[in-house]
């Protein structure tokens, strides 16, 4: 097999599509991490977004409405997460697990209540995200398929990375956020609203995960499937660790994970069993944890 031959337009063109949902969720996770909240509910927030996007697009008559409802769905579930994690001060890990299971149960329940189907919902009335072709860039070798021909959410994700980089290290809110995550009590003695900042970070992660979900169900495909987030929220959790909660590092991690997904996708085209190619992203993500070497979690 010609290895270089793998790097064709299919592979390059799918990389941004696959990397974007992970990147958006990871940016949300990053903000929470910086604020001192370990958010493992990204998976559920993303799933809620994916479902919301399909609902919005179906009833609202367009992709924009889909994106709007996706963000609202992510926000609503994130508000619940924030209520339990910040106001009621519950165990973050248990809350994250509960949010993921709630999203999975709710979407299946609503899938049946609203559309009367099980498993998956596909309908011509669900409008997908439009594709933007960048004139000039499009024709370039390699760069063309990589940069051109994606939904606006893909470009938005890149802009969000830059915006969060600036927010964290140039803006007063970023300084306070970092302080809150490092030593909440100290921030509190200086009159900085710890709970407010944490709510903000969690809600932002809800909106970002909502966008991620919209990219999944209206960008990469145009349908909703039960549990279609398929562990991407968890891969995002690893991306935050791997990128050391730094926007550029997280971007790098997400490009790597997105690349393995598109590589798996590409290999599937070569008649390899789909089960084997699909497990590639999880294996690579797992492997990256060996490089990351978390701080010792036990005594």
């Amino acid at each position: 097999m010609d290895l270089l031959g793998l790097f064709d337009a299919t592979l390059l063109g799918s990389l941004p599509r696959f990397a974007t949902p992970i990147l958006l969720a990871a940016l949300g996770g990053l903000l929470c991490e910086r604020a001192g909240v370990f958010n493992i509910g990204l998976e559920g927030l993303m799933l809620a977004g994916a479902f919301g996007a399909v609902v919005g697009s179906y009833f609202g008559g367009g992709a924009l409405a889909g994106v709007g409802v996706a963000v609202l769905a992510g926000l609503a579930l994130a508000a619940l997460l924030a209520l339990f994690a910040v106001t009621l001060r519950g165990n973050e890990i248990v809350i994250g697990i509960a949010i993921n299971l709630l999203a999975s149960g709710l979407t299946v329940y609503l899938l049946r209540s609203i559309f009367g189907v099980k498993g998956a919902f596909q309908d011509p009335a669900v409008v997908g995200l439009p594709i933007h072709r960048l004139p000039g860039v499009e024709a370039l070798p390699f760069l063309g398929p990589l940069l051109s021909g994606h939904s606006s959410i893909v470009y938005l994700a890149l802009a969000a990375t830059a915006a969060i980089q600036l927010l964290l290290f140039r803006h007063v809110i970023g300084l306070r956020l970092r302080g809150v995550g490092e030593h909440a009590e100290a921030a509190m003695t200086l009159g900085v609203g710890v709970d407010r900042l944490r709510y903000g970070a969690i809600l932002a992660s809800g909106a970002l995960c909502g966008l991620a979900g919209a990219q999944l169900s209206l960008g990469n495909v145009t349908l909703f499937v039960e549990n279609m987030s398929a562990g991407r929220g968890w891969i995002a959790v690893v991306a935050v660790m791997f990128g050391r909660a730094h926007p550029l590092g997280v971007l790098g991690a997400c490009l790597l994970f997105g690349f393995t997904e598109s590589l798996g996708f590409r290999l599937q085209g070569l008649m390899l069993p789909s089960q084997l190619t699909e497990s590639l992203p999880y294996m690579v993500t797992l492997a990256s944890l060996f490089v990351f070497r978390a701080r010792a979690s036990r005594g």
Binding site: I40, I93, A230, G231, W234, I235, V237, V238, M241, E278, S279, Y282, M283, T285, L286, L289, F290, F292, R293, A294, R295, A296, S297
Partner: peptide, 15 residues
Amino acid sequence: FRVPLLVSTLLMNYP
């Protein structure tokens, strides 16, 4: 290797 169990066990479900 200090790979956090919480995440590794979850990810190992998929393969």
